[in-house]
C-alpha cells in the first residue's frame, strides 16, 4: 500500500468545494462508491447539493422532502444533488478544488433562484452595496 491515505469522514466530507475560478460552491456532502467485478470499491464521485447532507445524517425522509419541495417550488432548479465525477476533481486538501464552473452546480442554482425571485424584488436591490 503506497498511495496517499485519507480518511473519508475526517479529510473529505464537509470540505469546502472551490470551482475552477476559485469561487466557493458548496460542501462535500457524500461520496459515491462504485464496486468492480472483483469487489473492490472506488470513490467514483463527490455528492453535493440539496438534501444530500440531510440524507447522509440519517434524515432520509427530510432529505427526500427537501428535494421534492425544491422541485415543486423552485421552477428551473434541479432538485437532485450534484454528482461531481472524480475526474473533475483536481485537488483534495483543506478544501476540494474541482474543474467545473460554479454555475452548473445545483447549490448555486438555488442561490440564483432566490436572487431572481426574492432578492431581486426588494426595492433597491438592483445596485451595488457601495453605490
Amino acid at each position: 500500500m503506497t498511495g496517499r491515505r485519507l480518511y473519508a469522514a475526517l479529510h473529505v466530507l464537509d470540505r469546502q468545494l472551490i470551482d475552477r475560478d476559485g469561487r466557493l460552491c458548496g460542501k462535500v456532502d457524500d461520496l459515491e462508491l462504485a464496486e468492480t467485478a472483483e469487489g473492490t470499491l472506488y470513490v467514483s464521485a463527490l455528492i453535493s447539493g440539496p438534501g444530500a447532507l440531510w440524507y447522509r445524517l440519517g434524515g432520509r425522509r427530510l432529505g427526500r422532502w427537501l428535494r421534492e419541495h425544491i422541485a415543486r417550488t423552485m421552477s428551473g432548479v434541479d432538485p437532485d444533488p450534484d454528482r461531481i465525477p472524480m475526474a473533475r476533481v483536481s485537488d483534495i486538501a483543506s478544501a476540494v478544488t474541482i474543474t467545473l464552473d460554479q454555475s452548473v452546480l445545483a447549490t448555486s442554482a438555488a442561490e440564483h433562484w432566490v436572487r431572481d425571485h426574492v432578492i431581486g424584488h426588494i426595492p433597491g436591490s438592483r445596485h451595488d452595496a457601495d453605490e
Binding site: 500500500m1 485519507l6 480518511y7 469522514a9 462508491l33 473492490t40 472506488y42 472524480m86 475526474a87 473533475r88
Partner: peptide, 26 residues
C-alpha cells in the same frame, strides 16, 4: 462504521490521479 480509510492507488483518472480505493473501515 465511523469512517472509511481511502488509499489513492486505484486506476489512473485524468485530471485527478489515481482513484481512491476503499481500503478499510474504522
Amino acid at each position: 462504521v465511523t469512517d472509511i480509510r481511502l488509499v489513492q492507488d486505484g486506476p489512473y483518472l485524468e485530471g485527478f490521479g489515481n482513484a481512491l480505493r476503499v481500503d478499510a473501515v474504522v
